[in-house]
Design a binder for these strands. Structure first.
Length: 676
DNA sequence: ACAGAATCAAATTAT
DNA sequence: TTGATTCTGT
């Protein structure tokens, strides 16, 4: 790597890359080449500053960002060095830290990582209630406490509102259960490594020696715990670069605090502040709208984005009758724009506030045979058949994982039911045993009915045949063979045909299982990971990795949150309505009052993120009516439209208003095929 | 233990 | 309207 990599960089970018005299904070506006700076800096460290690739760490929030970073570095550094770099999400780094030193926080190395669904089920089992909203509130509160490094005892002292008092009662038992299962939740993946570094000087020293330089992406999205982790990892040398943008802080609801940006200045007086203000992505028209909107928010740092790309196309704002009309209009216009601009499908994105808005959009795109991919939505790993198989693997990786035991024991049906599990559970609880261990004891077997006893014994015997193989050292585990035998042993394919409505559905579900197995085998083969490592990581993985290298030419459908970091030539923001885009929760909640102004500000940043995804054209749509719950409801256009300095355009006279949606669709389709 | 019928609630955002 | 969960009977 030579200085050539700097030739087309502006002075601020070059400075951000070259600055190595101490900690630095790079305030990178949207589209200002942030990722490029991080990548160049890593290459610079390795190629010109003699850093060992293995001593450079970079943390991101999503697997996708980490993956992209590694791919781009492969081109700059070659496969060998790129492989040695430590590029990962915060959570993957946490898993790794815990695995290497689990006993320091009282865990076995073979712990389980429970995803949000597992945790929800756990809380549900702790408190006998059907109130879903209450369970969610409890979980969120516990999560917020964890992210702020507040343990159950401290929380007990702090809890004041009814909601907090409710949550604090469960916080203790929730943690106790996780511990009993040798399991951690997502928050623990940051909290526990953090505690480990604080409490164990020898561990801390080892990590500080290992991490010679640390780069943190999307710094505005870090929470108190992650801030602490960064501090502990970098220690007194404080060799790190944090990159972030306070205008794009959109994860306050999960504990992120953009005050972490300001906190850096306090904690590191020598901090070097670098601003990237030139935008290379969008037209001036789009940037002006974004800037105008965001000036409504109080500023942490002053920052003025500018562009050399000229004004370009005007932004459009369109009012549509309902959701269906909106989806169809967007599909039609998008399709027409592609022809007009001689663009590809991949140049277009439709962005929305909440996942459910994708449904109707998908329908409309399908009707017009427009290829699309839905980004976000980790549907694959949420599928029942996938979770079933993973339950077996989790149990093999960690015999204390009682939730996995229960799921595996009852699917496929093998004569072990609720009564049996309850008896077994009572026996295990008395003796502080895992369900799996209890099931192997004479004492437990004697209190269970003969028929069930036999079923249980056969289940346990079956698993034991695999357990010894799964606990072999990671390098010499024939993971592929183990998986195949396991699947054959439980005859899962047969089970799927039994329980599915029709053979077609069963075929699809079995294919999902095969995809999962394939994914696991591939990962095992080229990472020398064993079953334990694979299973520990799988909760953190989303579908994106499965789509593979070759992305087909397709329109992107994405939530605004999932769209952060992406860019598209042409962006359609749909559902720009009061209540939806400034999203308003239920007003009856006693907690809601706390920061309504702050909530609007975060929603405004979300809008800002959406706008700044667009390179060349931006189109906003909103619905006059929307089905909410059961009945129709009138909607207003979002306040953000006016705040951007835009007006609703005189709506295109709609001669087809009296047509049925189907008729209109046919008509529009006909118009499309006609040359203009 | 399990499958079908009745009832009920529904709407953030995600590692 | 759906989709999911709970109840009931075998």
């Amino acid at each position: 790597m030579t200085t050539s990599q700097f030739l087309d960089m502006n002075p601020a970018q070059q400075q951000a890359v070259r600055y190595l005299d101490g900690p630095s904070l790079v305030l990178a506006g949207a589209g200002s080449g942030k990722t490029r700076v991080i990548i160049s800096k890593i290459a610079y460290l390795v190629n010109q500053c003699a850093y060992q690739p293995g001593s450079v760490f970079a943390v991101t929030f999503t697997n996708k960002a980490a993956l992209e970073m590694r791919e781009r570095l492969q081109k700059l550094l070659g496969a060998q060095k790129a492989e040695e770099l430590n590029i990962s999400t915060f959570h993957s780094l946490g898993v790794r830290m815990l695995r290497e030193n689990a006993q320091a926080v009282g865990l076995k190395a073979r712990f389980s990582v429970m995803d949000a669904q597992d945790c929800f089920a756990l809380v549900q089992s702790l408190v006998a209630t059907t109130d879903k909203a209450r369970l969610k509130a409890v979980m969120q509160q516990i999560s917020l406490w964890k992210n702020a490094l507040i343990d159950p005892d401290q929380a007990a002292g702090l809890a004041k509102t009814a909601r907090e008092l409710d949550a604090v009662r469960l916080y203790h038992s929730y943690q106790a259960s996780l511990r009993a299962y040798q399991a951690v939740d997502f928050d623990d993946l940051i909290v526990l490594p953090c505690q480990m570094l604080v409490n164990e000087p020898s561990v801390r020293e080892r990590w500080q020696n290992r991490v010679r330089y640390l780069l943190i992406d999307e710094y505005q999205d870090t929470n108190a715990c992650q801030y602490q982790l960064v501090r502990q990892l970098t220690g007194a040398r404080a060799m790190f670069t944090a990159v972030g943008d306070d205008d794009q802080a959109i994860y306050g609801w999960r504990g992120a605090t953009m005050e972490n940006l300001a906190l850096l200045e306090q904690d590191y007086p020598q901090l070097k502040l670098i601003k990237l203000e030139q935008n290379y992505r969008s037209t001036q028209t789009i940037l002006t709208a974004a800037n105008t909107l965001i000036t409504r928010n109080p500023k942490l740092f002053e920052k003025q984005l500018w562009s050399e790309l000229g004004n370009g196309e005007a932004i459009t704002v369109s009012r549509l009758e309902g959701e269906l009309e909106q989806a169809q209009a967007v599909a039609i216009r998008l399709s027409a724009a592609r022809t007009e601009k001689r663009a590809q499908w991949r140049d277009f994105a439709v962005l929305y506030r909440s996942n459910q808005q994708a449904r109707m959009m998908e329908q409309a795109l399908r009707d017009l045979r427009i290829p699309y991919t839905v980004s976000g939505g980790q549907s694959f790993f949420d599928k029942a058949e996938v979770r079933d198989v993973l339950a077996y693997l989790r149990l093999l990786a960690n015999e204390y994982d009682d939730p996995a035991f229960i799921r595996a024991a009852t699917t496929p049906r093998r004569g072990i039911g609720q009564t049996t599990l309850q008896t077994l559970g009572e026996y295990a609880a008395k003796r502080h045993l895992s369900l799996f261990a209890a099931a192997q004891e004479q004492g437990a077997q004697s209190v269970i009915q003969p028929k069930q006893r036999e079923a249980l014994a056969s289940f346990v015997g079956f698993l034991q045949r695999f357990a010894s193989r799964a606990s072999k050292p990671a390098g010499q585990q024939p993971v592929a063979g183990l998986l195949d035998e396991l699947m054959a042993g439980i005859d899962y394919e047969h089970y799927l045909y039994d329980v599915s409505a029709d053979d077609r559905a069963a075929r699809v579900r079995w294919q999902n299982v095969l995809d999962l197995l394939d994914w696991l085998k591939t990962r095992a083969a080229d990472s020398d990971w064993g079953l334990t490592e694979l299973v520990q990581h799988i909760a953190l993985v989303t579908m994106l990795e499965r789509q593979g290298d070759q992305s087909p030419d397709a329109v992107t459908l994405s939530t605004l949150h999932a769209a952060k970091g992406l860019e598209f030539a042409h962006v359609y923001l749909i559902g720009i309505e009061e209540g939806l885009l400034p999203h308003l929760g239920r007003e009856s909640d006693d907690e809601v009052l706390i920061g309504s102004a702050q909530r609007i500000e975060e929603e405004r940043r979300l809008m800002y993120v959406g706008i700044t995804r667009a390179r060349r054209s931006l189109h906003l749509t909103w619905c006059a009516r929307r089905r909410r719950g059961g009945q129709d409801h009138a909607c207003e256009v979002s306040r953000f439209v006016a705040e951007m300095g835009l007006e609703e355009q005189p709506s295109v006279a709609d001669p087809n208003a009296s047509l049925t949606p189907k008729g209109r669709l046919d008509m529009l389709r006909a118009m499309l095929t006609r040359p203009s």
